[in-house]
Design a protein around this nucleic acid. Sequence first.
DNA 1: AGCATAAATAATAA
DNA 2: TTATTATTTATGCT
Lengths: 204, 204
Amino acid sequence: VVKPVPPSLASAVPLASGEAPTVGQLVSKPPQGGTDEECINLEEIREFAKNFKIRRLSLGLTQTQVGQALTATEGPAYSQSAICRFEKLDITPKSAQKLKPVLERWLAEAELWNQKGQQNLMEFVGGEPSKKRKRRTSFTPQAIEVLNSYFEKNALPTGQEITQIAKELNYDREVVRVWFCNRRQTLKNTSKINVFQVQQQQQQ
Amino acid sequence: VVKPVPPSLASAVPLASGEAPTVGQLVSKPPQGGTDEECINLEEIREFAKNFKIRRLSLGLTQTQVGQALTATEGPAYSQSAICRFEKLDITPKSAQKLKPVLERWLAEAELWNQKGQQNLMEFVGGEPSKKRKRRTSFTPQAIEVLNSYFEKNALPTGQEITQIAKELNYDREVVRVWFCNRRQTLKNTSKINVFQVQQQQQQ
DNA sequence: AGCATAAATAATAA
DNA sequence: TTATTATTTATGCT
């Protein structure tokens, strides 16, 4: 049913031969060769995906929430990644075709519940209605010192190591894990800037 | 696994008497005492804030982008935090009152540009074409000398001071800001004092 | 008044 | 899919 991509276009799209192209890749191309029906279909999916995201955000729902709710109500499992990929059209037309009506139906129902009150929506979605954001943790200077020394030795500790460090410092394990995530992040950003500065040395 | 019970001070609104309440705190209360006009006004702001977020997301813009764009086109500076706090109504009614028309006007214009094509929106949001783009440069030894002398006097310069220093040295403001960050960080990492400092919060 | 960064969310790698 | 990174939002602090 699905036609393989003509090899002449392979250079523009980084796609291993034999793999099915994503919807995003197909809609960005001019409508060549295919029948009108196929083209309209793809355009329809693109339109829906864009709309879906806006409607989801209007309801104040995350991709994770949608995925979990779908997993609960519909049959198979839908991960956050799956919803993300649909919204970005980073899936094959076949998958999109299959997913679209499911999302359409679910979202319409969610909007219905939302009209009856946000509380109803949250019940429908399933999660705890009042999941409060965690209070921001303040690390003591001593703790930061210790964390930094661990980070210098190993920026990517294993789960066990994290547990160990958390225990030593008497902080929540999750808090320590996130600290390492963010620390790696800031380091990466900083080093980017530094690299850039070195490259631009001539300028001033 | 032991779940520590946080000191539940969250049940009541943590508001020191004498401080102005935020819009969010006011609208969540029943309309007591105030005139009708005041109530309608608050409700209006709440409605707009909610709507603003949806419209912003529909345009695919981040809080950071909005803040930066506003800073460029309107007079004063608008940080990402400021936009965030407006959307969450975590500001006083007075501030909200002042900010609302600015956001309203800007967003309407942004939507106009978006209708003409997303490229136009990005131009509108992004760099002002009229303002010449500052050159990204690295630090000369002379500049580092000056920076160090500033750092000795004050390791934590205000935004204005950073702007001032950046202007004096003819460097990008962000580059100067990051320089101070890194300088403080280095100092903190190598310093072994503070041993006697009292342990702070979130230690369980 | 808004920076610094912790936490949450989205996107990508494995 | 699950695990991790990248990006964005939110907030403690001064």
